[in-house]
Design a protein around this nucleic acid. Structure first.
Lengths: 107, 107
DNA sequence: ACCGTTCATCCGCATATCCGAATATAACAA
DNA sequence: TTGTTATATTCGGATATGCGGATGAACGGT
């Protein structure tokens, strides 16, 4: 795979990297991966004010990482890209390796 | 793989997600993946002021994503985690799918 | 010791991002 | 239409992040 052009770089950053650049949004992705939920369920599960949850959901939705389906008065959110969860899991595995190296270095 | 605890979430964010949350750092990772380089080579390859490059390298180095090896007066940087490049490549593939969906939706 | 090269860090400024109370909007029921 | 519940958006303020000139520190050559 070639080195990304500047335009692709910018799109990659805006649409994906930046979207998972916030811990609350990562948390939301995992919560929705566990099971689809409406906004209120997320508010309670993550113990976070509703506007905060809605704002993060809007960001994930605009980038196509979650889908929103209205069901009466509530809106059910789902993970749209299972690969995103896989990526996060790989990152977590990497993280363990990185932390081990850190702790084993005595300087 | 279980849902990450709050502490793991914070570490994941700080050590990895945030590190690749800047387009210049992604660009640096790809440039180093193409071939190891010293700071000056990066300055020229990315056409970016040296303090900016050094600052980004410090962030990547602190998180263990690149390694620095002094060679005389210059310092050669290398990608420490090839998996990080693989992850970015998967993100780029995802990106294409996401952009297609966007452009095919007529609202 | 002095100098030139290479890189790291400091610092002030500009911008981006996040937060959450307040408010607006959408859907449904009575 | 009025009220209630669920969600989205607005807004001001706080914090974080990026930038790059100026400066400091490390190294090798003379």
């Amino acid at each position: 795979m070639a080195v990304p052009s500047n335009e692709e770089l910018e799109l990659l950053h805006r649409n994906i990297c930046q979207a998972v650049g916030d811990p609350k949004r990562i948390q939301i992705l995992y919560a929705l991966h566990e099971q689809p939920r409406n906004v209120n369920a997320l508010v309670e599960a993550l113990n976070t004010p509703q506007p905060t949850i809605s704002r993060h959901l809007a960001i994930l939705r605009e980038r196509g990482l979650v889908t929103a389906e209205r069901d009466g008065t509530s809106v059910i959110y789902r993970v749209a890209e299972p690969r995103m969860i896989e990526i996060l899991d790989v990152m977590r595995q990497m993280l363990r390796g990185l932390l081990e190296k850190q702790s084993s270095v005595v300087e």
